[in-house]
Design a protein around this nucleic acid. Sequence first.
DNA 1: CTCAATATTTAACTTCGTCAAGTATTGATT
DNA 2: AATCAATACTTGACGAAGTTAAATATTGAG
Lengths: 388, 388
Amino acid sequence: MFPATGTDALASTPAATAVFTAVLTDGPLSRVSLADRLGLSSAAVTKAARPLIDMGYLYELAATERTGPGAGRPATPLAVRADREFFIGVKITSDELIGVVCDLRAGVRATARRRLTDTGVEAVLAELGQLVEGLIDAPAGYRARTRRLGLAISGDVDRTTGLVRYSPFLQWRNVPLRQLAEELTGLAVTVENDVKALTAAEHWFGEGVGAESFALVTVGTGIGCGLVVHGRLLSGSNGVAGEIGHISVDATGPTCHCGGRGCVEAIAGTDAIVRQVREAVGRPDITIEGAIALARDGDEAVRAVFARAGNAIGCGIAAVANLVGPARIVVSGEGLAAYDLLETHIRAGFERQAFGVAAECPLSIRPLPFEEWARGAAAVSIQTLVVP
Amino acid sequence: MFPATGTDALASTPAATAVFTAVLTDGPLSRVSLADRLGLSSAAVTKAARPLIDMGYLYELAATERTGPGAGRPATPLAVRADREFFIGVKITSDELIGVVCDLRAGVRATARRRLTDTGVEAVLAELGQLVEGLIDAPAGYRARTRRLGLAISGDVDRTTGLVRYSPFLQWRNVPLRQLAEELTGLAVTVENDVKALTAAEHWFGEGVGAESFALVTVGTGIGCGLVVHGRLLSGSNGVAGEIGHISVDATGPTCHCGGRGCVEAIAGTDAIVRQVREAVGRPDITIEGAIALARDGDEAVRAVFARAGNAIGCGIAAVANLVGPARIVVSGEGLAAYDLLETHIRAGFERQAFGVAAECPLSIRPLPFEEWARGAAAVSIQTLVVP
DNA sequence: CTCAATATTTAACTTCGTCAAGTATTGATT
DNA sequence: AATCAATACTTGACGAAGTTAAATATTGAG
């Protein structure tokens, strides 16, 4: 029906990009409302939309939406045809690959995982090839309409070149991952830092939709933060940005592996919590699951560790709110779920340290299925299609 | 020679704005280098520059600059005619107005001050009128070429409307300062928060020139921070941004007037330092000047107070570096000069808490003449001319 | 059935840039 | 001195991408 491949840009003009982005992220919209929102004439929207409709990316909704109470021709909203194209997203961790197939609206259509036993570049690529093959040939037969692959990986990643400069968990340095993955799969590949990918997904397809500025905080082994400012993902001039985990919130707190003291991560990272709980209860064998269980059973000393951790996270988030002033903040985690133990303390720490109206910044705290990371990778791939 | 007034935009097209901004902030530049830098064709630069030359804002430098070792027609750099237009900047504090006349390149041409005895809106406006009159009629006779006035004021300011929402020191709420000042002076007025104005000045005319991201930290009674991200001044979605003073850096530190605990300002603000020094030496009458003198004389207890303050500031700056990753950071102060006592501790705190390559962010620490605040106001006014 | 109201399309026009060719000005080479 | 290569700048035709204004489409209400 439509050409399956081709690297031509989806939107040739700024107006077309704006129209498609608005419809994609903010649901069906009539041409007039698009014109208003984007500061364009309605004629320009008509022109921009036509090729997108012709290519099958947009379609006109049945005119069910009445314009309102009054008279007048009813609007014909434009909507994205989600199954026009599919995108594969893969999150690469040190012990597992997690993959998803997403449609154009970042809806997850299929998932798959593969264990990693070797974190060498070649071994990971081999597994990646298998994973992608399996996903792309899933029953629904996405192959004909899939041409892009997004990869998310922790560490220092240059999205524009697709180079993994340094990934501590995988022990990778200067791996030209995009090039390698493109040769392997034949797909157009985008590589992005995992936290930034998740932030981008949330910015376009989640709670951050429409926000000029937005922050996403991830809590787990590390504590990270992705920031959207002026509508764009923040990268930092040295590639460092959003390192909320190494903000110092306690001058007398524990030293951190980074050389700092009282870092949020040294108080509230998974390892730090485990260490503190072990000290508190005198059982050097306890795991994070055991610590959570003890806390839920009401062990006050263990609960205090979680309280301190939540407070530290809240202080870090307040620092984000005070410095950047995002329109909203989402706090989420790497699969594990100690939210019941942390949430109230995170909020308390945040509200105490957020300055003035910064405290009014809405805070969403919710667990995050692990596939979300892979979906983030797919979302970045979708963005690459839309905004080259 | 040239029309003195008129509200037509200086640059009618995006290219013209880009050309003028580049020449203004980055010194004389040839048309070819402008084209390279701005991603335009040299034809476009020629066309954009002509009206700017005709209006007297730009002029062609005598072709002294050789293109380099090789042959070829020498370049004719374009330069800004600094005395084409003058701008008045006024910083409004609770006890004084500080005013400057700046040229187009933000060079200070004249300064003046007026004491305030009454912080009511009408009283301040009356003094402002006197100050502006005095400056505009200075011997050099700027009146004919001055049509803009910038005002800088601490607190919550909406630059687009010129409304002072809340200024704690002046006790102002919802004062339509732009409108009032325009009626008073007949000049086109821009109102901006003082720290942001200073940041804008440094971004266009100081150490931040050319930086995509940049931070300026002010140390004094309050501790503030202006941020430039993605080449734009950051405002925060609720108007709150850069509130470095209320980041918590010490969970066991003193409580702050904001309700938080261990805020940078509660440790390193002028009042906090004075309070701590009074406790340390048991002299409740001591002032900040006295504290500085004691520290310089080698009083260890007092020096420790400054050390702690410097460290707290360094931690706050590290939080900025970790979260935002600016290309450089300037630390400056509100007139007073305890820099010798603070600098090493600021750097130590920063380097300890800055994560990875964030520590490589260049840090300039230097005192700041008080007129700089007024110059910041003038700089904002210049920006308004260039980028309406 | 007509009309007001609103949505969308069409076509002429404007703006702002690029492209390609020409002009200008220098140092080096003959 | 004449010529040439190299680089800077200018010119004019063109094209892309938007706007404006008028026409067309589709509805509810009178």
